[in-house]
Design a protein around this nucleic acid. Sequence first.
RNA 1: CGGGGUGUGGCGCAGUCCGGUAGCGCACCUGGUUUGGGACCAGGGGGUCGAAGGUUCGAAUCCUUUCGCCCCGACCA
Length: 567
Amino acid sequence: MRLSQYILPTQKEDPSDAQVSSHRLMIRAGLIRKEAAGMYAYLPAGLRALRKISAIVKDEMDKAGAMECLMPELTTADLWKESGRWDSMGPEMFRIRDRNSMEYALGPTHEEAFTALVRSVVSSYKDLPVNVYQINTKFRDEIRPRFGVIRSKEFIMKDAYSFDIDQGGLDESYQKMAAAYRAIFDRCGLETIPVQADSGTMGGSASEEFMVASEVGEETLLLCEKCGYRANQEKAEFKRSSSEFGEKSALTEVNTPAIKTIDDLAEFFSCDGKLFLKTIVFVADGEPVVAVVTGDRDINEAKLKNYLQATDIEQADDETVVAVTKSSVGFAGPVRSEAPRIIFDSAVANIHGAITGANKTDYHFTGVEPGRDFVIEEEADLVEAVEGDLCPDCGEPMITRKGIEVGHIFKLGKKYTESMKVSVLDNNGKAVVPLMGCYGIGVTRTLAAVIEQHHDDSGLTWPASVAPFDVHLVGIGKGDEEKAAIDEVYNSLISEGLDVLYDDRKLSPGVKFADADLLGVPVRITCGKSYFADGELEIKIRKTGEQSAVKPDNLSKKIREILADHN
RNA sequence: CGGGGUGUGGCGCAGUCCGGUAGCGCACCUGGUUUGGGACCAGGGGGUCGAAGGUUCGAAUCCUUUCGCCCCGACCA
């Protein structure tokens, strides 16, 4: 491509509304433009990089035996009603009506659509296993789109769905995808950390997330450097201490006017937050539930939700809190509680002389004793693991990292095949419900993640595998003759089958170099005075800054070597 | 949705408190001189200040309403 005829609107200054580096650089390098919050247009260079990623994804999926399809973006309400998700998906799903008032959703994910497709084409165990996928746009009415293309209302996802006759088959399909994902991210030049994850609203059993370590990651990961345990904070378990703490004493009611938060209470009683019993009211599937944890910990709602096997959980509003605790917000506690159901974190049983709300406005109890002052009927792991907590496998202290989730694989089991009545005949002629797995990669997000991992102060430093071009040819020539000579170099590179971006603009060299650095194509060839004097081209590796002189004869060979090295 | 911030040529910003009819840098156009790390000179085009309403002789500036966008929290690839 000749840059003089290409749309590559580079910007010298950072856009004011972009915070994270990938977003800033994608705008500055002219890869994307923002249309509205969470909606981006891909310009030619950005689309090239995106297509490179899609091609890698497709290649590895195909190699793993998956079959590419293309599903409609518009999905009928009936489809979602079959699985029950028309109601459970909530406002995240974009819903629209046609002129006849028929209801549709813009596909936020395609379990239902693919399940229905497979249902219509398989009838025997001989037809299984199948793994079908697409690379297509997803629509999600995100609560808060942010970080550019990392979290947007519309994004491109590769979603695959496997169907197997039995658990062994599902395990195999799942392992194939796990291996394919490792290969995909590796080829994209991404270092990912696979972690155990909560399976969330997708349902199902095993689940693994592929995270890209990044400061701007929205996920917190707990990692054990000793044994390799890795989990998303939502899922992360940790070795609970069985040692008891605090000192037994008599139950006493203390006036604590308007002192509600753990911090304020710790100051008021001048003691450790750990000695408090934090009591929070939730509403799970419409029913109020009270959770009690020690004051030094945060409740992990995902764990609570899983324990309750609830489909929806949220903190109760003030009215509900008042109704449940018979006091104003901030004075809830397990002692003499009238709450219908109380779940205790497993650390609560070890506490002595705890302090907790008295279910009476402006009063707390001290000297609270589990067993004596309240009964623990339901106990579970309810709290969030934090840095320094002990690894559940080996007991070493764990560390935390921030990560961007680029891929997620699940074993769904029969969740959809059962609700949508898929059945095939097994080798005994008996109808069985196939087991399903689902496997997603955020393609546009992967692009942003690649940039998060590959940039420096001057701009992008693409891995060759996803770079929009192989070579950035900077021409610095004066008269027509020199320009014609540079054109020749350009043509010869193209004839070698290389993707070349040729900067033929009438601009000063500094501008061209700065743009080349910003766009970050792996190899830069400068054709200027040394070429006209000695017939030598300058070749520079963007990532390392390494520079050398080459004769035109060896040029394409040299370029291919560099590209192979910088994947 | 709650909290915080912001909206002025394509981009980045000043002006707003103390109303007087819009400015700077970059980009763009023309001519000329330049050409290996964001050149220089001269000339030039482009905005009614997010939107609506109000106060006033007069509003980017004051008041009211409203919308967009960004950041922090609950959702997710």
